[in-house]
Amino acid sequence: MVLFENSIIKLVYEPATDVLEVTYPDLHDYLLPEIKHSISILADHVKSFDVKRLLLDSSRTSVSVGEEESKAISTFLAAELMKTRLQKLARLQSASPAIESSAEKNITHIKQAGMLPFQLQNFESKPEALKWLISNI
Score class of each variant (00 low, 15 high):
residue 63 V to H: 04
residue 91 R to F: 15
residue 100 E to G: 13
residue 46 V to T: 03
residue 73 I to Q: 06
residue 98 A to V: 05
residue 75 T to H: 06
residue 121 Q to C: 14
residue 57 D to C: 12
residue 79 A to T: 14
residue 53 R to S: 14
residue 55 L to A: 11
residue 120 L to A: 01
residue 117 P to I: 05
residue 126 K to F: 07
residue 55 L to I: 14
residue 57 D to I: 13
residue 72 A to P: 01
residue 116 L to I: 10
residue 69 E to P: 00
residue 67 E to L: 07
residue 90 A to F: 10
residue 121 Q to L: 14
residue 37 H to V: 07
residue 69 E to Y: 08
residue 51 V to G: 15
residue 43 A to I: 01
residue 72 A to V: 03
residue 75 T to G: 00
residue 62 S to V: 10
residue 45 H to M: 14
residue 75 T to V: 03
residue 107 I to H: 00
residue 71 K to Q: 13
residue 116 L to N: 04
residue 120 L to Y: 05
residue 86 L to D: 11
residue 50 D to C: 12
residue 62 S to E: 06
residue 102 S to L: 12
residue 116 L to R: 02
residue 113 A to L: 11
residue 110 I to H: 05
residue 38 S to Q: 03
residue 37 H to K: 09
residue 107 I to Y: 08
residue 110 I to V: 12
residue 64 S to T: 15
residue 123 F to W: 08
residue 63 V to K: 04
residue 44 D to P: 05
residue 119 Q to F: 06
residue 125 S to A: 09
residue 113 A to P: 02
residue 45 H to T: 10
residue 82 M to N: 08
residue 112 Q to E: 10
residue 125 S to R: 08
residue 38 S to L: 02
residue 61 T to P: 02
residue 123 F to C: 11
residue 89 L to V: 15
residue 76 F to D: 04
residue 110 I to Y: 01
residue 76 F to I: 07
residue 85 R to V: 11
residue 42 L to G: 07
residue 47 K to N: 10
residue 123 F to M: 09
residue 38 S to F: 00
residue 95 A to M: 07
residue 122 N to P: 06
residue 61 T to I: 05
residue 44 D to V: 05
residue 50 D to A: 15
residue 120 L to Q: 01
residue 43 A to E: 02
residue 110 I to M: 07
residue 102 S to K: 05
residue 115 M to I: 00
residue 41 I to G: 00
residue 105 K to P: 01
residue 101 S to K: 08
residue 43 A to D: 01
residue 74 S to F: 13
residue 62 S to A: 03
residue 100 E to M: 13
residue 106 N to F: 06
residue 67 E to V: 02
residue 95 A to N: 09
residue 87 Q to L: 10
residue 76 F to Y: 06
residue 78 A to I: 04
residue 41 I to R: 11
residue 63 V to S: 04
residue 68 E to V: 01
residue 88 K to I: 15
residue 98 A to Y: 13
residue 105 K to V: 08
residue 65 V to S: 08
residue 53 R to I: 15
residue 102 S to G: 06
residue 91 R to M: 15
residue 110 I to W: 02
residue 84 T to F: 05
residue 122 N to G: 10
residue 95 A to H: 04
residue 89 L to T: 13
residue 46 V to K: 01
residue 120 L to R: 05
residue 94 S to L: 05
residue 69 E to M: 04
residue 107 I to P: 00
residue 88 K to Y: 14
residue 100 E to Y: 08
residue 41 I to L: 11
residue 118 F to R: 05
residue 112 Q to S: 14
residue 51 V to H: 09
residue 87 Q to F: 05
residue 86 L to S: 11
residue 123 F to N: 06
residue 114 G to P: 09
residue 37 H to E: 02
residue 48 S to G: 13
residue 75 T to E: 09
